[in-house]
Nucleic acid binder design. Structure first.
Lengths: 191, 191
DNA sequence: GCTGATAGTTTCGAATCGAAATCATCAGTG
DNA sequence: CACTGATGATTTCGATTCGAAACTATCAGC
């Protein structure tokens, strides 16, 4: 039987192997992460600050990463939605097409090929580990709206108490920077 | 239910969060990985080349990483065992002591705290994913002697057909650079 | 002894990333 | 409406890291 150290080490090893660039090396690992993040984050989270928080880096570095993607024509600045300070990036069709060549697809395929029992267990385990690690590190966590304590109503009638606005149905399964576990402290953010 | 993409992304996110340096930042992530590797690799694998292969980097970079650890007094050069070209590093007591402060211990603790059913499933899933990913990438894999096709005899009577020598019992559960899955092609290495 | 292969090391340049300073916008307050 | 503090984004600069390539040393085979 494996020990926790061995499992933890394999996790690191696996992630490192999966992140390794393709031979053609189209994007850096950080840029791939940003592209994936933007493809899965909802409107209020597709900002440099939110990506910096997600990627555990500084806003300055996040700006550079996103700027590089913008220069490549993979993302573009969207509507600035009321607050003139914020920048909301959107994927361009080109960016969306590039996601099909994500180096992560090998890992995705490996995960998809797991026996159903292991697959389901992994689906339960990963969010748990992420949350537990974040708890130990006091780091902000990330999750989707339907798992968030700010979420009220049903999916087709979604309302985010943190953002104080309705949420389009497709966005309730996307990542959100304001995610807050139901049992956790209320956020310092103002509603 | 989570999709394979989401699970894969969480894997990457988790590993990145776990690797993040401590506040006191004693070692770089690469140096931590090297220290862990040396603590778990058997005699023939504690070399710059083997670490380079494990860490998916070049020999030059591996040399630098190990040199940094040696300069800090965490590892030292051991006996050069017959082949004058090879360098075998060993952990010093200081290095072994530092492992107790491995930033990975938070993830280890989170893994150890999983419900038994999920823990066991994860223990089965991780080696599977690592092997499957390596297969898709044609990358050399890593494993322990008892899972290796070169391994003959019982643990207390261990013999590695690849190294053509007996293996001390404690080493049969350590990582080996010559690891080769039972179903895979024979290695290009000469015995 | 010669040749080619393997292991390790060194050097150099490019790329990345973080810290700090700077600019722009927003929310209050009097 | 100016003033102030806070927030978000950006820029600049320096340190670090890492990979490619050249180089040295040892081994195996002829």
């Amino acid at each position: 039987m494996s020990t926790p150290d061995e499992i933890a080490e394999l996790l690191i090893h696996l992630a490192r192997a999966a992140r390794a660039e393709d031979a053609d090396a189209q994007l850096t690992p950080a840029q791939w992460t940003a592209l994936r993040f933007l493809s899965r984050a909802n409107t209020v989270s597709r900002t440099p600050s939110a990506f910096a928080s997600f990627h555990a880096t500084t806003r300055g570095t996040a700006t550079q990463t996103l700027k590089a993607l913008e220069a490549k024509g993979l993302i573009r600045r969207g509507d600035t939605q009321s607050d003139g300070r914020k920048v909301c990036y959107d994927l361009t069709p080109k960016g969306r097409a590039l996601l099909a060549q994500d180096p992560l697809r090998d890992l995705t395929a490996a995960v998809a090929g797991l026996p159903p029992a292991l697959y389901e267990a992994l689906g339960q385990t990963m969010p748990r580990l992420v949350a537990e690690l974040a708890r130990r590190r006091d780091a902000p966590s990330f999750g989707t709206c339907t798992d968030c304590r700010h979420f009220e109503g049903r999916p087709q009638d979604a309302f985010c108490a943190c953002m104080a606005r309705m949420i389009a149905a497709p966005e309730t399964t996307q990542l959100c920077v304001n995610f807050n576990k139901p049992d956790a402290e209320p956020p310092r953010l103002r509603d």
